[in-house]
Amino acid sequence: MSTASPVPTELTQPGTHRPNMAELDLPVVENPAEVAPQDAREISKLFFERLDTVVEGTHEHQYVRNTLIELNLALVKYAAARFRNRSEQMEDIVQVGTIGLIKAIDRFELSREVEFATFAVPYIVGEIKRFFRDTSWAVHVPRRLQELRIDLAKAVDELSQNLDRTPTTAELAEHLGIEEEEVIEGVVASNGYTAGSIDMPMEDASDHSPAPLADRLGGPDADLETAENVQALKPLIQELDDRDRRILRMRFGEEMTQSEIGEELGVSQMHVSRLLTRITSRLREGLLKAD
């Protein structure tokens, strides 16, 4: 994803329209991002009071809202720090967290009588976690299974401590209040969280130069489809009458020509052709229905 900052930059652009601070009855904040955290909290209260009174879409509203975003960027960096060990770039994590900050600013009300930081951090962390949940999987799986993977991991840790062993599928199902089939589905889906390359060398103590997994993987069996078709044909052939089965045996088993089959049955070669067409069409339709 792009690492361009989502924070509006109008405040720092030369020639940007800035509302009259006297009219807004607000302090002038030249560099909001550099304000100390304690001062930022106090100034934010003043800007939140004014945000409730200015008309949305105006320059005044834009200025107040953008200043609040920059004043509270430290909250995003604080929340993002706990995810520093993730493989994603910290720049991306901060960007996603800033989206959570903006949502918190748009939904905050001073009447809640809580500190804005207390209100905003869950929004910021939630947005970051949602980003990991939706983008960190090696393959796409439904969100329900992504969330189930997290629940299973917590359940395994908790039950392993209580039981002093790895919990069974039935125990996990009972603990989470779901069916065993759902537990199995979640475990299988968890395999899609990470992926390894088949070109990576396999660790094998007997090999001085381990070969990649790709060299050990088998290819598709060319005769597999034929074997499957033969098994599917057996019940269909049993439904044919004796003469139709005899014609099939002579044509495909003994590899007799249509003329030879006609002599054997006492009919013309043309009649044998029509019989074979009818028989094979019936078998083909039966196979297609089975598929």
Rank of each mutant, 00 (worst) to 15 (best):
K77Y: 10
R86Q: 13
I105V: 13
N85Q: 14
E88A: 11
A80G: 05
Q89Y: 10
I99H: 09
H61P: 00
E70K: 12
E70I: 02
K77M: 06
Y78R: 13
G97S: 08
R82V: 05
Y63R: 10
G100T: 02
K77T: 11
N66Q: 14
Q95P: 00
A74H: 15
T67Q: 11
L75H: 09
A104S: 15
G97F: 05
L101F: 08
E70V: 01
R65A: 06
V94Y: 14
R86I: 01
I99W: 11
L73F: 04
L68Y: 07
R84P: 00
K77P: 00
L71H: 08
H61I: 01
F83Q: 07
T98A: 12
T67W: 08
E88K: 11
V94C: 12
I105F: 06
L73Y: 05
K77F: 12
R65I: 02
N85P: 00
T98E: 02
Y78C: 05
A79G: 06
Q62A: 14
Q62P: 02
A74T: 08
N66F: 06
I99T: 07
I93C: 05
D92H: 00
A81K: 14
R84G: 03
N66E: 15
R86P: 00
V96T: 07
T67L: 06
Q89H: 09
A81W: 13
I102M: 15
A81H: 15
Q95I: 02
Q95D: 04
A81M: 09
V64D: 07
L68P: 07
R65Q: 11
M90I: 13
Q89S: 11
T98Q: 00
L73K: 11
Y78I: 04
N66G: 13
T98F: 02
Y78D: 13
N85E: 14
L75G: 09
E70H: 15
K77E: 14
A79L: 04
I93Y: 00
I69D: 10
Y63L: 11
K77R: 14
V94A: 06
Y78M: 08
R82H: 12
M90L: 14
V76R: 03
G97L: 03
G100Y: 06
A104I: 09
T98W: 04
V64I: 13
A79F: 01
Y63H: 15
H61T: 01
V94K: 11
N72K: 12
V96S: 03
A81N: 14
